[in-house]
Design a protein around this nucleic acid. Structure first.
Lengths: 205, 205
DNA sequence: TGTACATCAGTGAACGCGCGTTCACTGATGTAC
DNA sequence: TGTACATCAGTGAACGCGCGTTCACTGATGTAC
């Protein structure tokens, strides 16, 4: 019997380690969101199946489905923000390089995790919308742009506007990439990001 | 009994006019997509309720749910393409004005019909993706940009690239608008479109 | 050291629901003879 | 002009399904006395 294991009780986590299952659930849900390409079709029962547990077990860690989805969105927003921040770290000396690295990191996350990207832009967590959750990233970009300007790279508009410009444009490009299965050339998305970035400076580069 | 009417047969369309119901179904579904803000939650039974008919009646006009959704996407893509085309019509003398009018028309459609916009960008009609369906619009924009260039407004890049740039950027802005209930100032989206358009020219305007 | 008990991690079975789809039907209207 | 029949627009009732959620439970492990 190949699926005998499935009918057998999962060996419980040691006492006090119940929170481990919470992470396992989030991982399983993440996997599912990746496979499904979004929130649509994501079900409590499906997550339970993917995690190898009983559906009821999920309710020990999430009050309901909405809370699970919200937890998932938050989890992945944090991952994305970290990736962008980290990308600029060793490049304080060359702010333009840092800017490109950060934007490329953003693109890579979005391209490698279509389902999650869609989820964190779609999900309407009651209190804070996606804009709220993406604001930290915008601020990082704005700050880097500011350092570019200070280093003598003249902008065609105020720093904040430029940050929105670049960010929003890249978002559009990524969204189009996701919705068109024909256009699967990652490098073209990165090229677009570079090209758009060049536009906000008076001299491209 | 208030809902007596609901339990009564709809008076059938005259013979040969059965196709009318197809349109009524599409209209009802459109209304629903607007209310729901997207494809999610759109059901055959819900459409039937909204149209005041029996669920089974839908199958006379659409083979299954997928075909209904595809018909809906096509219907609205056509509406959008027409709106953009029309916006530039009386403005052959001033291509820059035509460009702005077209892009504003695009924004207005997207802002006024969030559900439809989401739908036509999300829906994966088996054969042609959204890119295919949006291509005509891109071509209209490219053509107008070409006329701008011919009229002496110098572009910072080839016409096709500029069209993609503007189009994709606006799409990003609109998408962000939709996903952030805080940011409901339509004029800012239009301003963004203008600002982005200015960027692809050597001198803004 | 023993034992009763509380706590913890996790489960099986059931609930009511709305869904997509199918099928044999109804009743009105046109057509052939 | 009458009548049998085909066609058309649309329907009611039922199907099987997977869903979210609840509830009383199981069995292991720690704690109090």
């Amino acid at each position: 019997m190949t699926d005998e294991a499935a009918t057998v009780y999962r060996t419980p986590n040691p006492r006090g380690q119940g929170a481990r299952l919470r992470l396992e659930i989030l991982h399983a849900a993440s996997r599912l969101v990746s496979e499904l390409g979004g929130e649509q079709g994501l079900t409590i029962r499906g997550v339970a199946r993917a995690a190898g547990i009983a559906p009821a077990s999920i309710y020990q860690h999430f009050a309901d489905k909405a809370e699970l989805v919200e937890g998932l969105a938050r989890y992945n927003t944090d991952r994305l923000a970290l990736a962008v921040r980290d990308a600029g770290l060793g490049l304080a000396a060359d702010p333009v390089a840092a800017l490109h690295a950060q934007l490329h990191a953003y693109c890579h996350f979005a391209l490698d995790n279509p389902g999650h990207y869609r989820l964190l832009l779609t999900s309407r967590s009651d209190a804070r919308g996606p804009r709220q959750s993406l604001t930290p990233i915008l601020e990082v970009v704005a700050e880097t742009l500011g350092r570019c300007e200070a280093a003598g790279h003249q902008l065609r508009m105020p720093v904040e506007r430029a940050a929105v410009m670049v960010f929003v444009g890249i978002h559009g490009r990524v969204a189009l990439f996701h919705s068109d299965s024909t256009d699967q050339d990652t490098t073209r998305v990165l090229a677009f990001a570079d090209e758009l970035t060049a536009l906000v400076f008076t001299v491209g580069g």
